[in-house]
């Protein structure tokens, strides 16, 4: 039986949630499972190109512990997942429009394009959807 694709809707800029998105997406992708990550709302700000890691994520209940322990950076996990497995990452078209951003505004080497919510949710009917 083929494993259904994993769809992750990431809306929060909290370090905790972006960390979990990076872990779930990368592990899913390297486990012979198609992963689709949709980045929307405040989460998109963590993916702005050129930000230092210290400014990228919002404080959250576990962010200090994650930072001090030196866990893998979530964006690096996503890049590893894309490199080693099958993962697509799309930015929500609405938040890109609201911010007046272009694809060039986003972290290089991570995004496959911009997508609308309707298309993402329609695609997600084929698999398992996680919202963070």
């Amino acid at each position: 039986m083929t494993t259904p694709p994993l769809y992750i809707m990431l809306c929060s800029a909290d370090r905790d949630k972006i960390q979990m998105a990076g872990m779930a997406a990368s592990v899913g992708a390297v486990s012979d499972r198609k992963v689709h990550l949709f980045v929307s709302m405040g989460a998109i700000k963590a993916f702005k190109t050129g930000l230092p890691a210290s400014d990228r994520y919002q404080p959250s209940p576990f962010s200090k512990e994650l930072q001090s322990a030196g866990v893998p950076d979530p964006l690096e996990l996503l890049k590893q997942g894309k490199m080693l497995g099958e993962m697509q990452v799309h930015a929500c078209s609405m938040v890109i429009d609201v911010l007046g951003w272009e694809m060039e505004s986003l972290e290089e080497g991570l995004f496959d394009g911009v997508m609308g919510l309707t298309k993402f949710l329609s695609d997600a009917e084929q698999g398992q959807l996680i919202t963070l």
Partner: peptide, 13 residues
């Protein structure tokens, strides 16, 4: 010293 899922990702690479 690497935290989850670091060791798994290093193994796969």
């Amino acid at each position: 010293g690497s935290f989850c899922p670091g060791p798994l990702m290093e193994l796969i690479a």
